[in-house]
Design a protein around this nucleic acid. Structure first.
Length: 271
DNA sequence: CCCGATTCCTGTAGGC
DNA sequence: TGCCTACAGGAATCGG
């Protein structure tokens, strides 16, 4: 499930193959993914060069000469660069043919991902204005989390997964960061001290950076721009490890549902 | 306002 | 072996 490291990995991979190249043709293979795909702009982007590709939150932003494309990978989405002779796969929903004799394909079995087109920077910014701070930004610190969380009864795990608070942290990295910070995921966000938030902020940044270095986490579906998996799943400490021994104390890892999502923690190491 | 529940979707795993 | 059900979850939306 693409969180910040997987989206970052995808963007870095795409830059090499796509930036500076011109879109020769664009097409959809279905009307709907997460949102309806609007055919009206398909012809409009043909002939435009992709100037650059960046990440904001879990979003992939493509700056074209005139317009913007905004992709969200959802749960099972991926963007991969194909050779001209590579067969289209089941669940490939969108493709862009490039003048570099490559095809960029959006693949998404569960179709929680989306693609939106924006005619100008202002409408793009408007649509992502509600997003919170970037976790790797210096301004994301203990003070920020502590101040925002006062009087909140919401579980601290749900709090740090709220994209209006801090972006890019999904279920996997929230579980892992809370484990290293020694904080129980179900603890009320408003009851976490500033010094514990300091530890949590440090661990969030650390776990995200390490996951980026390993090319992200591939549980089932994630593949990068070259259709290769990530390797961070090999070093997950608690996520998906219910019943297994905690790597720090050997006690059994537990799972609890928070906000409908499975949350893994060590009852001994996390208080 | 706050926050939990529900909804979208398909592949896979586990039970019988 | 095969059928059925439960589960995975990002995030918008709904409702208490």
């Amino acid at each position: 499930m693409p969180e910040l490291p997987e989206v970052e990995t995808t963007v870095k991979g795409l830059q090499h193959y796509v930036e500076g190249h011109t879109i020769k043709a664009a097409q959809f293979f279905r009307e709907n993914i997460r949102y309806p795909l609007d055919k009206s702009w398909l012809k409009q982007i043909e002939g435009q060069k992709v100037l650059f590709i960046t990440r904001r939150a879990k979003l992939i932003v493509m700056r074209l000469e005139q317009d913007f494309l905004l992709w969200h990978l959802g749960m099972t989405g991926s963007l991969r660069v194909c050779q001209l002779n590579e067969a289209k796969r089941k669940h490939d929903h969108v493709e862009l043919l490039l003048d570099s004799q490559r095809i960029l394909r959006f693949h998404d079995p569960r179709r929680f991902g989306y693609l939106k087109w924006f005619a100008d920077e202002e409408s793009l910014y408007q649509s992502i204005a509600h997003y919170g701070i970037e976790p790797l930004d210096e301004a994301f610190d203990a003070n920020y989390l502590w101040q925002l969380s006062r009087n909140k009864k919401q579980a601290v795990k749900n709090f740090i997964m709220d994209q209006e608070v801090v972006v890019g942290v999904g279920n996997i990295y929230a579980c892992e960061a809370l484990f290293y910070a020694g904080i129980r995921p179900q603890l009320a966000a408003g009851k976490v001290s500033k010094s514990r938030y300091q530890q949590l902020v440090f661990e969030i940044k650390k776990v995200l950076k390490e996951a980026i270095a390993k090319g992200g986490t591939t549980l089932k579906d994630f593949e990068n721009a070259e259709a290769k998996p990530g390797y961070f799943q090999q070093v997950l400490s608690v996520y998906g490890r219910e019943g297994e021994a905690c790597p720090q104390c050997q006690q059994m890892i537990k799972a609890v549902k928070l906000g409908g999502r499975n949350s893994f923690y060590c009852p001994t190491c996390q208080k």
